[in-house]
Protein backbone atom coordinates (compact mmCIF):
# COMPACT_ATOMS: atom_id res chain seq x y z
CA UNK A 1 0.00 0.00 0.00
CA UNK A 2 1.12 3.57 -0.64
CA UNK A 3 2.86 4.61 2.63
CA UNK A 4 1.60 8.16 2.20
CA UNK A 5 -1.97 6.93 2.77
CA UNK A 6 -2.87 6.11 6.32
CA UNK A 7 -5.97 5.10 8.21
CA UNK A 8 -6.75 7.48 11.04
CA UNK A 9 -9.37 7.30 13.77
CA UNK A 10 -10.66 10.33 15.62
CA UNK A 11 -13.71 11.76 17.36
CA UNK A 12 -15.77 14.12 15.23
CA UNK A 13 -18.36 16.18 17.11
CA UNK A 14 -18.71 13.37 19.65
CA UNK A 15 -18.83 10.48 17.16
CA UNK A 16 -15.98 8.01 16.73
CA UNK A 17 -15.02 7.91 13.05
CA UNK A 18 -12.16 6.77 10.85
CA UNK A 19 -10.88 7.58 7.38
CA UNK A 20 -8.18 6.64 4.88
CA UNK A 21 -6.30 9.84 4.20
CA UNK A 22 -3.48 10.91 1.93
CA UNK A 23 -0.61 12.72 3.61
CA UNK A 24 -1.07 16.01 1.78
CA UNK A 25 -4.71 16.70 2.52
CA UNK A 26 -5.60 19.20 5.20
CA UNK A 27 -8.24 19.19 7.89
CA UNK A 28 -10.76 21.17 5.83
CA UNK A 29 -10.53 18.59 3.01
CA UNK A 30 -10.99 15.82 5.57
CA UNK A 31 -14.15 17.42 6.98
CA UNK A 32 -15.62 17.67 3.46
CA UNK A 33 -15.45 13.88 3.25
CA UNK A 34 -17.81 13.80 6.25
CA UNK A 35 -20.12 16.29 4.54
CA UNK A 36 -19.22 19.03 7.00
CA UNK A 37 -18.81 22.37 5.27
CA UNK A 38 -18.88 24.78 8.21
CA UNK A 39 -15.09 25.08 8.15
CA UNK A 40 -14.12 26.72 4.87
CA UNK A 41 -10.73 27.24 3.33
CA UNK A 42 -10.68 30.90 2.37
CA UNK A 43 -7.23 32.51 2.56
CA UNK A 44 -5.47 29.15 2.89
CA UNK A 45 -2.76 30.78 5.00
CA UNK A 46 -4.12 30.74 8.54
CA UNK A 47 -4.94 34.46 8.40
CA UNK A 48 -8.72 34.65 8.02
CA UNK A 49 -10.14 32.16 10.51
CA UNK A 50 -12.84 30.75 8.19
CA UNK A 51 -11.41 27.24 8.62
CA UNK A 52 -11.33 27.31 12.44
CA UNK A 53 -11.72 23.87 14.06
CA UNK A 54 -11.28 22.93 17.71
CA UNK A 55 -8.78 20.08 18.07
CA UNK A 56 -8.84 18.64 21.59
CA UNK A 57 -10.60 21.87 22.55
CA UNK A 58 -7.95 24.16 21.06
CA UNK A 59 -8.71 26.40 18.08
CA UNK A 60 -6.54 25.75 15.03
CA UNK A 61 -6.59 26.73 11.38
CA UNK A 62 -7.85 23.66 9.50
CA UNK A 63 -6.12 24.83 6.33
CA UNK A 64 -2.69 24.58 8.02
CA UNK A 65 -3.37 21.25 9.73
CA UNK A 66 -2.39 18.02 7.99
CA UNK A 67 -5.33 15.63 8.18
CA UNK A 68 -3.22 12.62 9.21
CA UNK A 69 -2.08 14.48 12.32
CA UNK A 70 -5.57 14.53 13.87
CA UNK A 71 -5.32 10.77 14.40
CA UNK A 72 -6.56 10.03 17.91
CA UNK A 73 -7.79 13.56 18.52
CA UNK A 74 -11.22 14.98 19.23
CA UNK A 75 -12.55 17.55 16.76
CA UNK A 76 -15.33 20.05 17.21
CA UNK A 77 -16.67 21.95 14.22
CA UNK A 78 -19.43 24.52 14.15
CA UNK A 79 -21.82 21.68 13.29
CA UNK A 80 -21.10 20.16 16.70
CA UNK A 81 -22.28 23.22 18.61
CA UNK A 82 -26.01 22.58 18.10
CA UNK A 83 -25.77 18.78 18.11
CA UNK A 84 -28.33 18.72 20.92
CA UNK A 85 -30.84 20.40 18.64
CA UNK A 86 -30.58 23.83 20.22
CA UNK A 87 -28.24 26.59 19.07
CA UNK A 88 -25.36 27.38 21.37
CA UNK A 89 -25.50 30.60 23.39
CA UNK A 90 -22.89 32.12 21.08
CA UNK A 91 -24.77 31.15 17.92
CA UNK A 92 -28.00 32.64 19.30
CA UNK A 93 -26.18 35.84 20.28
CA UNK A 94 -24.78 36.19 16.74
CA UNK A 95 -28.32 35.91 15.36
CA UNK A 96 -29.81 38.30 17.90
CA UNK A 97 -27.14 40.94 17.26
CA UNK A 98 -27.20 40.47 13.47
CA UNK A 99 -23.49 39.71 13.61
CA UNK A 100 -23.15 38.54 9.99
CA UNK A 101 -24.26 39.34 6.51
CA UNK A 102 -23.15 36.64 4.06
CA UNK A 103 -22.24 34.24 6.88
CA UNK A 104 -19.14 32.78 5.24
CA UNK A 105 -16.83 33.72 8.12
CA UNK A 106 -19.39 33.11 10.87
CA UNK A 107 -18.48 29.52 11.86
CA UNK A 108 -14.91 30.68 12.54
CA UNK A 109 -16.04 33.69 14.56
CA UNK A 110 -18.48 31.55 16.54
CA UNK A 111 -15.87 28.90 17.40
CA UNK A 112 -13.28 31.53 18.32
CA UNK A 113 -15.86 33.25 20.52
CA UNK A 114 -16.55 29.96 22.32
CA UNK A 115 -12.83 29.58 22.91
CA UNK A 116 -12.43 33.17 24.11
CA UNK A 117 -15.33 32.95 26.57
CA UNK A 118 -13.99 29.68 27.93
CA UNK A 119 -10.77 31.38 29.06
CA UNK A 120 -12.15 34.86 29.72
CA UNK A 121 -15.80 34.96 30.79
CA UNK A 122 -16.10 38.74 30.64
CA UNK A 123 -13.74 40.14 28.00
CA UNK A 124 -13.67 43.89 27.40
CA UNK A 125 -13.84 45.32 23.89
CA UNK A 126 -10.05 45.55 23.59
CA UNK A 127 -9.64 41.90 24.56
CA UNK A 128 -12.34 40.84 22.10
CA UNK A 129 -10.68 42.79 19.27
CA UNK A 130 -7.28 41.33 20.12
CA UNK A 131 -8.58 37.79 20.27
CA UNK A 132 -10.57 37.99 17.04
CA UNK A 133 -7.90 39.94 15.13
CA UNK A 134 -7.11 36.77 13.18
CA UNK A 135 -10.69 36.43 11.87
CA UNK A 136 -11.71 38.43 8.84
CA UNK A 137 -15.28 39.43 7.96
CA UNK A 138 -15.37 40.87 4.47
CA UNK A 139 -18.91 42.16 5.04
CA UNK A 140 -17.36 44.12 7.92
CA UNK A 141 -19.95 43.16 10.52
CA UNK A 142 -17.30 43.81 13.16
CA UNK A 143 -19.33 46.16 15.43
CA UNK A 144 -22.18 43.64 15.55
CA UNK A 145 -19.73 40.75 16.12
CA UNK A 146 -18.21 42.53 19.11
CA UNK A 147 -21.70 43.15 20.48
CA UNK A 148 -22.59 39.48 19.93
CA UNK A 149 -19.51 38.36 21.89
CA UNK A 150 -20.48 40.65 24.77
CA UNK A 151 -24.08 39.45 24.66
CA UNK A 152 -22.98 35.81 24.60
CA UNK A 153 -20.66 36.46 27.55
CA UNK A 154 -23.44 38.17 29.51
CA UNK A 155 -25.84 35.28 28.86
CA UNK A 156 -23.28 32.60 29.70
CA UNK A 157 -22.45 34.30 33.00
CA UNK A 158 -26.16 34.61 33.77
CA UNK A 159 -26.61 30.87 33.16
CA UNK A 160 -23.63 29.87 35.29
CA UNK A 161 -24.60 32.00 38.31
Amino acid sequence: MDPSIRKIAFTLNGQKVSAQVESHINLVDLLRRFNLDGARESCGQGLCGCCTVLVDGVAVSGCLTLAQLVDGKSLTTVEGLDASGALSVVQQAFIDEGAFQCGFCTPGFVLMTHQLLETNADPDEHEIRDYLAGNLCRCAAYPEIIRAVKTAGDRMRAIST
Binding site: V58, S61, M112, G134
Partner: peptide
Protein backbone atom coordinates in the same frame (compact mmCIF):
# COMPACT_ATOMS: atom_id res chain seq x y z
CA UNK B 1 3.04 37.24 21.52
CA UNK B 2 -0.23 39.21 21.57
CA UNK B 3 0.61 40.72 18.20
CA UNK B 4 2.28 37.68 16.66
CA UNK B 5 0.12 36.10 13.94
CA UNK B 6 -3.17 35.12 15.65
CA UNK B 7 -4.55 32.90 18.40
CA UNK B 8 -4.85 29.79 16.19
CA UNK B 9 -1.31 30.05 14.88
CA UNK B 10 0.04 30.67 18.39
CA UNK B 11 -1.87 27.62 19.62
CA UNK B 12 0.18 25.31 17.41
Amino acid sequence: MKKLANVRVRNV
